[in-house]
Design a protein around this nucleic acid. Structure first.
Lengths: 336, 336
DNA sequence: TTGTAAGCGTTATCAA
DNA sequence: TTGATAACGCTTACAA
């Protein structure tokens, strides 16, 4: 048996194609008994609407596109987390997830014109480029951005709160008795790292003396931590704007013969799957990227008169073993 | 100006739609001058064929699907590597990459029927399930499997050589003077880990006494390495069937107070981005998964009378610092 | 509330 | 070598 089409259903139910179409799309203006008859025919024939037919007629395909920057190397495994979240939210919807690299606006335009996804999700650092969301708007493609902080247009963005996360982490270290906390900043242009730095400064009350510049990489974290550990009095804790840099700090501590966490606490903003494999297992703030992406998909799929916003997205403290109380010795040293 | 359609081109060039279609698709049987006229019209109008129209008429969309197992946790970052390779090979083709979770054959069938991708790539461990490739064949969807070793049907598979990789790694350790090498095996059902174990056994000449069972996880690697390190005489090197387990072995060595690589060499089969962040930086065999996936895409896109096969895919030895010569002490101990 | 009919942009068949 | 013309399966004005 060849696949049933809308025509077959219409014929069997004794109605027009339009009626079938309305029933399938759950639109109202169809009498209850007619609807029942059509549904019966649909079930009898095992009718499944053709996605290609739909795409052709409606001008939009059954896909959601996840746009990522292929340049920005994905140190924190954001892409897989985002994919997992999106797939979870799309499960059973019949939609497919397109994962698309986007760099120039021109190539994004070609993509949107050609593939016509039903909606688009902009991952950082793409989410920080207004050209791209403007382009989506211009093309009539619904768009949600995943951003590290609330900014301009609140309807088109799922925002985390990396600033808060960084403050919380700093607060946690402060509560552990650390009075001198070094911070390893990320790349200047990285919005996530920037928010994290702001949060750190917030929590420390503007004491920026202990900030060393990194670029997100392990090597830069190592170098920055070396600098911080030469300070005197030496910081008793280091907070890094990214996990790779925190791993670098762990390496610097080892180099300097400093036991972690006894002589130095190290903590990462952003968590990675292998954080627990480092030595010692790295404490981190975990951002709910997967949940955020799932929320983005849901918002894309929701009817236009959607419920305003979803719950806030806060990072979670994952205390492993690289952080601990400031040692009595160093506290005494510092205050005495 | 609304987008130009094939009709506009046909009208402007004074030919039929079919002729335009033939020119666009590069099919022959069109007179040179006619072709030139059509191409001129195409350029003048900036005509770009509609992917939805094509999909509708031809029954296949402008997408390649990358199928992965959402259950199997992706410890080695295979998915991102595969995505990168596929996107590289698809760049500029106008095709999009769909990343789709596949578990049951039924859900794959629904996906293929609904989305109608032009081709499908089966990532491990999916590639080991004959049902899935059979289903693709049945549905007429071209399919390439990414497999750890050559097996049955050579046309539908891009095979690496994990067995060889494991042998090479063992050979490398042997050449460093290690006479007792422990092996941490991966999960029983994991084809990649299984090949690696076979390769190890190959190289060691059937001495399976030093194999401890793991399951791919860090914790299992830690436990297995503990067992191996209790053996006497103790192995001077440990090879693990996966990076997470090798990280576990590093942790076990630290626990036991064994310096790596002086007292114990540790090596991973399979490389990960953060291998260099471990302490000491973990030596590994790096499999060219990204290149393999790119090759799979190319083969999917190649005309049916494709060139038979591409170059073999061999893993590359990445010697970092966790491996070194067997110490004189332990060699003496062993032979004396 | 429902039916009729006109697209949407290709590809493909069949003649010429 | 080329031209008409008919699908393909759906959505949606417009009519009734």
């Amino acid at each position: 048996m060849a696949k049933a089409t809308i025509n077959d259903v219409a014929r069997l139910a004794g109605v027009s194609k339009k009626t079938v179409s309305f029933v399938v799309n759950g639109r109202d203006g169809i009498a209850a008994d007619t609807r029942a008859r059509v549904e019966e025919a649909i079930a009898a024939l095992g009718f499944v609407p053709s996605l290609q037919g739909r795409a052709f007629a409606s001008g939009t395909t059954a896909t959601i596109a996840l746009l990522h920057d292929p340049q920005a190397e994905d140190r924190d495994g954001m892409l897989v987390q985002a994919i997992a979240g999106a797939q979870r939210a799309m499960a059973g919807s019949g939609l497919a997830l397109v994962v698309q690299p986007a760099e120039a606006a021109a190539s994004l335009r070609d993509f949107l014109e050609g593939q016509r996804p039903r909606g688009v999700i902009l991952l950082p650092p793409l989410s920080a480029r207004p050209v791209l969301s403007a382009l989506c708007r211009e093309m009539g493609t619904p768009c949600q951005r995943i951003a590290p902080a609330a900014d301009g247009d609140p309807t088109g963005v799922i925002s985390g709160n990396e600033r808060q996360a960084a403050s919380d982490a700093a607060g946690y270290l402060l509560a552990l008795g650390h009075a001198r906390i070094g911070f390893i900043a990320g790349d200047e242009g990285d919005a996530i790292a920037h928010e994290r730095e702001l949060g750190f400064v917030d929590a420390l009350g503007g004491d920026a003396g202990l900030v060393a510049q990194g670029d997100g990489s392990f090597a830069s974290g190592l170098a920055a931590a070396r600098l911080l550990l030469e300070l005197s009095p030496r910081p008793t804790a280091i907070l890094a704007a990214g996990p790779a840099m925190a791993a670098g700090a762990l390496a610097a501590a080892r180099e300097a013969g400093l036991a972690v966490p006894d002589a130095l606490s190290v903590m990462a903003l952003g968590d990675v799957a292998h954080a627990g494999q480092l030595h010692p297992p790295l404490s981190a703030m975990r951002s709910p990227l997967s949940a955020m992406t799932a929320a983005a998909v849901r918002r894309l799929l929701a009817p236009v008169d959607s419920p305003p916003a979803e719950a806030g997205f806060y990072a979670e403290l994952v205390a492993r073993s690289s952080s601990g109380p400031a040692s009595v010795a160093s506290v005494r040293l510092h205050s005495g």
